[in-house]
Simulated scan of single mutants.
Amino acid sequence: MRYFVWALRLIVFLAVLMFALKNTNPVSVAFIEGVSIPNVPLIVVMLSTFVLGTIFGLLLTVPPALRRRRELAKLRKELEKLQTATGPQSQAGLSPDALLPLSPL
């Protein structure tokens, strides 16, 4: 699955790159009223927009990932507490999932 995701990313990047290489005409980029940069190649605008969009998209995944990491640490502490409370002799044939089933995140 990991290779499929990387192949998909590569295909998207190559498609954007090929599209950008075909559009190299100079354009004027206006940021706000009165602030503009004239004669910027369209390829620079398109690739920088793609890279910034990718970075912002990845930044949006950081808070949920941190939340899941905290939840996992909390569940591991609970599991250790339950394992020490039940004693080593009763845990011999049980898996961690039997003691504390995983809840959907």
Rank of each mutant, 00 (worst) to 15 (best):
Lys22Asn: 04
Leu102Arg: 07
Ile43His: 08
Pro104Val: 14
Ser95Phe: 10
Met1Arg: 01
Val62Asn: 06
Leu58Asn: 05
Phe19Trp: 15
Ala85Gly: 04
Met18Cys: 11
Ile32Leu: 08
Ala30Tyr: 13
Val40Tyr: 04
Arg69Met: 12
Val35Thr: 07
Ser36Cys: 05
Thr84Gln: 15
Thr84Met: 14
Gly34Glu: 05
Phe13Trp: 14
Phe56Asn: 00
Leu82Met: 14
Ser48Pro: 00
Val40Trp: 06
Ile43Lys: 04
Phe56Gly: 00
Val16Tyr: 00
Thr86Phe: 11
Leu10Asp: 00
Arg70Ile: 12
Trp6Pro: 04
Ile11Cys: 05
Pro26Gln: 12
Glu71Ala: 12
Ser28Glu: 14
Thr54Ile: 01
Pro64Trp: 15
Phe13Asn: 13
Gln91His: 04
Leu75Asn: 02
Gln91Pro: 00
Trp6Ser: 12
Thr84Trp: 03
Thr86Lys: 08
Glu71His: 13
Leu102Gln: 08
Pro96Ser: 03
Leu58Trp: 13
Leu82Ser: 04
Trp6Asp: 10
Lys22Glu: 05
Gly53Glu: 13
Ile55Met: 10
Ala98Lys: 06
Ile11Glu: 11
Val35Arg: 13
Ser103Met: 13
Val45Ile: 15
Met1Asn: 06
Gly93Trp: 10
Leu60His: 15
Ala15Asn: 03
Leu100Pro: 02
Gln91Arg: 15
Leu52Val: 12
Ser95Gly: 13
Met18Val: 14
Pro38Gln: 14
Ser28Lys: 14
Lys74Trp: 04
Leu66Thr: 00
Leu59Tyr: 10
Leu75Gln: 07
Leu72Glu: 07
Met46Arg: 06
Val16Phe: 10
Met18Asp: 04
Leu105Ile: 10
Lys22Ile: 08
Ser103Cys: 02
Pro96Val: 09
Leu21Lys: 09
Ala65Gln: 13
Phe19Glu: 11
Ala7Leu: 14
Arg9Lys: 07
Thr86Tyr: 15
Val51Thr: 00
Thr84Ile: 02
Glu80Val: 00
Val62Arg: 00
Leu17Ile: 06
Leu47Lys: 03
Ala92Glu: 13
Ser36Val: 01
Pro96Thr: 05
Val5Glu: 09
Leu99Asp: 01
Gln91Gly: 09
Ala92Val: 14
Gly34Asp: 03
